[in-house]
């Protein structure tokens, strides 16, 4: 009992040790830890960033490699960086689904009844899911290496490619958060997200060069930000134009974040 009385939560008038900004960060990291523990305890949740990209690579490589590039080795250089981007984009879906599940189950009610920033539970979920991006990039680079994929640039560029893809994923994930907060069912989050993610990922030059496509589709591929991310990843991993696609990717990331992060917090707050 003596130890108990010694511990007074700051919430009850104890000394506040830190600034508001630091508290948001520390609460977010605590909740990211929660999200991480949950993911590691249910590893089957990682299928979409482990097995699924491997299947996509094998499927496209052997179905289309000969037709598009004449050889699978050549096609792998073209395909792998793009699949990396596709997987990260798809990986954002589960963040919204998990968030919606937490809200429905009432776990978030408890968080919202605590004196923490409204953005902390959302930031925590998102930061915790960053590990999924890391896993998918590692799996794809490892699997690609086994199939004969080699980095054609230097390690720093390769690292930059990985970080760039993650930055874009971090920006796009907030769209998933918005839908996760607003939707009524986890199932509908998945439905809505995949409806958006399919044209974003397949409507690119991921599997075929743009000039083989009909005119209207070429237009879409050119305005689609995911094309820029794929081009940037290709450039940084295998060589080629870098400046334009990287700039576009960063601008799009800032734009997506600027729109969807405040929207997500607003929607979450309105639910309260």
């Amino acid at each position: 009992m003596s130890t108990e009385t010694a511990v007074r939560p700051a919430a009850l008038g104890g000394p506040r040790r830190s600034s508001p900004g630091f508290r948001v960060l520390s609460h977010s990291l605590t909740l990211a830890w929660r999200s991480l523990v949950k993911t590691l305890r249910t590893p089957e949740q990682l299928i979409d960033v482990t097995l699924q990209p491997v299947i996509f690579v094998v499927m496209f490589l052997y179905l289309l490699g000969g037709a598009v590039s004449g050889s699978t080795d050549e096609y792998l250089r073209f395909l792998l960086p793009a699949i990396m981007v596709q997987t990260v984009v798809f990986a954002t879906v589960s963040t919204g689904v998990n968030l919606n599940t937490d809200i429905k189950k009432g776990v978030f009610d408890r968080f919202r009844s605590l004196p923490i920033a409204r953005s902390a539970p959302l930031l925590g979920s998102v930061l915790g899911d960053m590990v999924r991006f890391v896993v998918c990039i590692a799996v794809l680079l490892g699997f690609g290496y086994a199939l004969g994929f080699r980095i054609g640039t230097d390690p720093f560029s390769a690292l930059a490619a990985c970080l760039l893809v993650m930055v874009f994923g971090f920006a796009l994930i907030w769209a998933s958060v918005v839908i996760g907060v607003v939707a009524r069912e986890p199932g509908s989050v998945q439905g809505i997200m995949f409806m958006l993610m399919f044209p974003l990922t397949f409507g690119t030059n991921m599997i075929t060069p743009t000039d083989t496509l009909p005119g209207w589709l070429q237009w879409w591929v050119k305005v689609n930000p995911v094309t820029d991310v794929m081009e940037a990843a290709r450039g940084l991993l295998t060589g080629g134009a870098v400046a334009g696609p990287v700039t576009h990717t960063l601008l799009w990331s800032v734009g997506l974040f600027a729109v969807f992060f405040p929207l997500a917090v607003r929607c979450y707050r309105r639910k309260a």
Binding site: G14, R16, K38, K105
Partner: peptide, 23 residues
């Protein structure tokens, strides 16, 4: 509906709340 996190242990559930209360 008991709003505890099913994937966390009992201990982790309580530690999580404590951490969010700045302990």
């Amino acid at each position: 509906y008991a709003s505890v996190d099913e994937d966390l242990t009992g201990m982790e559930n309580l530690v999580l709340i404590g951490r969010l209360l700045d302990l």
